[in-house]
């Protein structure tokens, strides 16, 4: 368990999955936010992950994962005829983002599984480290 790098790697995974969970929460919370223009509609956000390789003396030291950017979905918003809505435009339409709840929930499940995996890696690494500290004590 040299120099705690494993914690950095698993920690970066936890952080990245956390961003993903945040975007899912944001997408689900805003799935019925209405707007009076198609441009002003909430756009679903998705994180893009990237592996960052580290190297010391030509030896690879592990690749952490980082969120490279958070992209916005390019899907056109849905329009709904709702003249009574105070946000309706001149023709009586309001616009809602095209967010698939099923898609978001599967993304959430996938993110939480990966999150747990990384936590488990850290837990195991910690246990092994503690055992190593006790080396030679019987």
């Amino acid at each position: 368990m040299s120099s705690f790098r494993i914690f950095d790697i698993a920690g970066s995974g936890v952080a990245a999955q956390n961003v993903r969970l945040n975007t899912v929460a944001s997408n689900l919370a805003n799935s019925s936010s209405v707007s009076s223009t198609p441009e002003g509609t909430y756009k679903a956000r998705f994180p893009v992950f990237e592996a960052v390789r580290g190297e010391i003396n030509g030896q690879e030291t592990g690749a952490a994962v980082v969120v490279k950017e958070v992209i916005e979905s390019g899907r056109a918003p849905n329009s709904r005829y709702e003249p009574s809505n105070p946000l309706a435009d001149a023709n009586g339409f309001v616009y809602t983002p095209d967010i698939s709840t099923v898609e978001q929930i599967t993304d959430m499940v996938s993110a939480s599984r990966s999150y747990q995996n990384n936590i488990e890696v850290m837990r195991t690494a910690r246990d092994l480290m503690m055992a190593t500290f006790r080396l030679g004590q019987g």
Binding site: I6, G13, Q17, A111, S114, N117, N118
Partner: peptide, 18 residues
């Protein structure tokens, strides 16, 4: 073994990286 656990941790951390 410690180094290998690092390599595998790396794989798991990047399980969703395109």
């Amino acid at each position: 073994s410690a180094q290998r656990s690092e390599v595998i941790a790396r794989n798991l951390a990047n399980a969703d990286t395109p």
